[in-house]
Amino acid sequence: MSAILQATALGKRYGDEWALRDCSFELPAGRVAALVGPNGAGKTTLLHLAVGLLAPTSGHIELFGSPPRQDRAVLERVGFVAQDTPLYHGFKVEEMLTLGRRLNRRWDGRWAEDRLRGLGIPLGKRVGALSGGQRAQVALALALAKRPELLLLDEPVASLDPLARREFLQALMDAVAETGISVVLSSHLIADLERVCDFLVLLIASEVRLSGDIEELVAAHKVLIGPRRSTIGIPGVEAVVQASHAERQTTLLARTSEPVYDPAWTVQDVDLEELVLAYMGQPALSARPMPAGPAEANG
């Protein structure tokens, strides 16, 4: 099986609220994936389902082809860093490493120590006395010392200043180059992750709106500018993501299946941020009229 993480019609409900619904995607091995969505879109819920901290209400999630809550052994192959990099602030860095060694069967403490020394982080210092950036590096080193094949990071750079953010992503990409590990990073800002990720899972209002190889997604989407007219049946256009009409002009962000040659349209490339924002501006799938069956009124 080539998918390292696979969700099929995955849903999680808290009381009456769906935190995640009908979520399907496949993450191929060897990718660095951005899990992007506004706050409250269900990113943390999805990551917690992936590592078996939560049980799905509906559907399935599989790691390396196994459901994480039934097959606990699969969790040895996964590293997870929760939001705000929780560590014991009273512990020294070296004590955190000892804890990691005792809690994990697979553990490469020497590698983690070398890594932290290389970053100039004193092992004898208490975690609480480190800077935010250093704490994030310690959490990353601990997660990598487990030698996982897949690393999941929940909003790893949200609380870091720009320099610490860059240093963190440098350390992470160095680990990817060294070990070939697959990574999922969540963020509410795509700009943070644009340079490091090659795969996108876009989560909006509890639904996966878009997923796939970033370069392919960017290449398939275009901005079309032309005289005001109907947006239906433009040759080459597969779906209109966003349309705005001025008195005489229509501007579209569309997913194309082939080049648009109609000279009435000026065709422009999009960047990833524009693309993500256009999808974020769409109404939720569950709020749109459904062709068959009753639509749920839940937003």
Partner: peptide, 15 residues
């Protein structure tokens, strides 16, 4: 090397 570029620019090694 790939690691040198990645370590400096903080970009995906696949790039």
């Amino acid at each position: 090397t790939v690691r040198e570029v990645v370590g400096k620019l903080a970009i995906n090694p696949n790039t």
